[in-house]
Every structure is written in C-alpha cells, then in structure tokens.
Deep mutational scan, measured.
Amino acid sequence: NRKASRNAYYFFVQEKIPELRRRGLPVARVADAIPYCSSDWALLREEEKEKYAEMAREWRAAQGKDPGP
C-alpha cells in the first residue's frame, strides 16, 4: 500500500479545506473536498496553478521522488 503522489491539485485542495469547513461542508480529508474544488481549479490561470505545482515539486524532492518533466 503506497502513498499516492501529491500533485499540484492536491495542494490546491488541501489549501481550500479550511474555507470549505467554514462554509459548513463535510470535508474531513482531501478526498472529501475534491468535488467542491474542481470548478475553482478549472478557473485558475496557469500562472496561479504554478504556486501549487512548485509545492508538489518540493514535496516530491523531499520524498526523494523523481520530479519528472
């Protein structure tokens, strides 16, 4: 049972969880929050997504994983 790799979207969703909880939505973990975040993610510009892509690269580097292209 390996841990899933964390991509840019994972970090975006993780950042949104406190806001979703404040709105009273039932989000205990990232998987619960995904349905509420997909439309917001789709509206982000590539420059805005880069922040989360960098977080994912840093996480992979800390895990000793290949950052890929």
Rank of each mutant, 00 (worst) to 15 (best):
A4L: 13
V30S: 07
R6E: 14
A4W: 07
I17G: 04
E54N: 09
A53R: 13
L20I: 02
Y10L: 05
G68H: 13
V27I: 06
F12L: 02
F11V: 04
Q14Y: 09
G64S: 13
F11M: 11
R2I: 15
G68W: 09
A56N: 09
K16N: 14
I17L: 08
A4K: 10
R29A: 08
A42C: 08
N7S: 13
R29C: 14
A8V: 01
Y9E: 12
D66G: 11
A42I: 07
A33L: 04
I34P: 00
W41S: 00
Y10F: 14
A42F: 11
Y10G: 04
G64C: 14
A28M: 06
A33G: 10
V30Y: 10
W41P: 03
F12M: 03
S5W: 12
R2C: 14
A56S: 12
A53V: 12
K65G: 11
L44D: 03
Y10E: 11
E54F: 05
C37P: 00
L44A: 07
E54K: 13
P18D: 06
C37V: 09
D32C: 01
K16Q: 12
D40G: 01
A4R: 10
F11A: 06
S5Y: 05
P69I: 03
S39D: 14
R6T: 14
G64V: 15
A56P: 02
M55I: 08
E58S: 07
Q63S: 14
I34D: 14
D66E: 12
R22G: 09
R29Y: 10
G68Y: 02
A8Q: 06
P18F: 06
P67H: 13
R45K: 12
L20E: 00
Q14A: 08
R57K: 12
W41C: 00
Q14R: 11
P18I: 04
A56L: 06
F12V: 01
E19T: 04
V30G: 03
L43Y: 14
L44V: 09
A33Y: 02
G68T: 08
L43A: 14
D66K: 15
L43E: 14
Y9V: 07
P35M: 08
R29N: 14
E54H: 09
G64E: 14
N7G: 12
N7F: 07
A53Y: 15
I34M: 14
A53D: 10
E46S: 08
G64Y: 15
A33P: 02
E58V: 07
I17E: 00
A42L: 10
R29G: 13
P35K: 13
P67T: 09
W41F: 06
E15D: 07
R6W: 05
P35I: 03
R6Y: 08
G68F: 09
P35G: 07
F11G: 02
P69K: 15
Y10P: 00
R22T: 07
V13L: 06
A31V: 10
P69L: 15
A53Q: 08
A53G: 10
R2W: 09
G24C: 07
Q63R: 13
F12D: 05
E46R: 09
D40Y: 04
I17Q: 00
R45G: 10
E19L: 04
Y9G: 03
V30H: 08
F12A: 02
Y10A: 05
S5V: 10
L20T: 02
P69D: 08
Q14N: 06
F12E: 01
N7K: 11
L44F: 04
R6L: 13
S39M: 14
P67W: 07
Q14W: 12
R21G: 13
G68D: 10
G64A: 15
A31N: 12
R45W: 04
G68P: 06
R29Q: 13
I17W: 06
S39P: 14
I34R: 09
K65N: 10
W41H: 00
P35S: 02
P35W: 01
Y10S: 03
N7Y: 04
W41Q: 00
G68S: 06
S38R: 15
V30E: 06
R29K: 15
P35R: 12
W41Y: 05
P69E: 15
E54T: 15
P26R: 04
A42G: 13
